[in-house]
């Protein structure tokens, strides 16, 4: 199987998602997330190149790389520093098994995509869709198998990346304004959740999501 550059980039993104599911160190996870976003940004830039150097899509690529690849991780690192928690604990299954599970999901998403009506005029359809769906699955697995709320945020961000990648490879690029709006939403969301994590830590002295059932009252 010969991978071209684009396929390598998108599968690189899903590879980092797999590694995130296995690593329990929060800083490592954020670094890997930032690498993943770089991959996504690069894929966007390549799409822009394929669309006759569409400047709008180039702009989105830059915005993604800077906002999601840099500012969001830095925000979260600051949150981690504040709550003084370095590593996460696995909740349902051990982290290594979660990693292997995401690999199985990568295979599953490949199977799913083969059944999907992919727009054929676009040769990037199947690798992009496979990587995108596997990103969504990986994010879900991460959110399910971790205790610390920061990991839930990272999982959510990975899912967001997956959805974005799916849109990018299945359509001819979203309108710039929509994408910008989404980016802004994500940024604000992360900031709020970072604050929330700090607040929860402050009032409950832990941020273990498995014990957050106390909040229901």
């Amino acid at each position: 199987m010969i991978l071209n550059l684009f396929e390598m980039v998108v599968f690189g993104a899903s590879f980092t998602a797999i590694l995130i599911a296995g690593a329990t160190h929060l800083r490592v996870n954020l670094a890997l997330y930032s690498v993943q976003t770089l991959f996504i940004g690069f894929a966007t830039a390549m799409t822009a190149h394929a669309h006759a150097d569409d400047m709008g899509i180039y702009g989105i690529a830059c915005a993604i790389t800077i906002l999601k690849g840099l500012i969001v991780p830095v925000c979260l690192v600051m949150a981690i520093d504040k709550i003084r928690i370095q590593s996460d604990a696995a909740s349902i299954i051990p982290a290594p098994l979660a990693m292997h599970l995401t690999i199985v999901f990568l295979g599953l998403s490949y199977l799913l995509v083969r059944g999907l009506p992919v727009p054929l005029e676009f040769s990037r359809g199947w690798p992009g869709a496979t990587a995108a769906i596997s990103l969504v699955f990986s994010g879900l697995v991460l959110m399910l198998t971790r205790r610390i709320a920061i990991s839930q945020i990272v999982g959510f961000l990975i899912i967001e990346n997956g959805i974005y990648l799916f849109a990018l490879t299945q359509t001819h690029g979203m309108p710039m304004i929509v994408e910008m709006g989404v980016l802004l939403d994500v940024l604000v969301g992360v900031m709020i959740s970072g604050l929330l994590v700090f607040k929860i830590q402050h009032s409950f002295e832990h941020i273990d999501v498995t014990r957050l059932t106390q909040l229901k009252d």
């Binding site: 296995g22 982290a95 690999i103 990568l106 490949y110």
Partner: peptide
Amino acid sequence: VPEFIAYCLTMSLIAGLIAVGGSLVK
């Protein structure tokens, strides 16, 4: 140690996945 070995298995699993899927794409 099992966690370290898990990374080794991850590499092989992905390689296996590529091999299984890839031989079909050809």
